[in-house]
């Protein structure tokens, strides 16, 4: 369980695909690793693919929001892509709207969004 979520480097973007049911520490680890990598690589965009995530609770939601804000401070734009309808409906019901986080339907559209930024 101590493993990390891999971060891929593509051009001036960082790409993360979350495929496991994250426990809280893993989510915080990702937050640390990402800010570290943005700063060391000077990346201008971060793309987080959550299409295989079956659930986003307030903790994970908060981590996604934090990543987005921290990246902004480091001059990088974050796009969260591929949220499943059931997850989106649940998040809205929970009262979390991820204000300030950009979203896109899939990786391709997310990349386009980052390229135009």
């Amino acid at each position: 369980m101590q493993d990390r979520i891999p971060i891929l480097h593509m051009g001036s973007c960082l790409l993360v695909t979350i495929q496991v049911d994250m426990h809280d520490r893993l989510a915080l680890q990702l937050q640390d690793d990402l800010t570290e990598r943005i700063s060391s690589t000077g990346a201008k965009g971060v793309l987080i693919d959550i299409s295989s995530l079956e659930m986003v609770d307030s903790f994970i939601g908060r981590v996604l929001g934090n990543i987005s804000s921290m990246a902004r401070v480091l001059d990088a734009k974050t796009v969260v892509v591929g949220m499943q309808p059931a997850v989106a409906i649940t998040l809205v019901e929970l009262g979390l709207s991820l204000v300030g986080v950009s979203t896109a339907l899939n990786v391709e559209k997310g990349m386009k969004l980052l390229a135009n930024a």
Binding site: Q84, A88, I89, S97, T103, K109
Partner: peptide, 12 residues
């Protein structure tokens, strides 16, 4: 309104 919010979270 909730649907609009959920669609936005998905990127639409």
């Amino acid at each position: 309104l909730k649907t609009v919010a959920a669609a936005r979270l998905m990127g639409a």
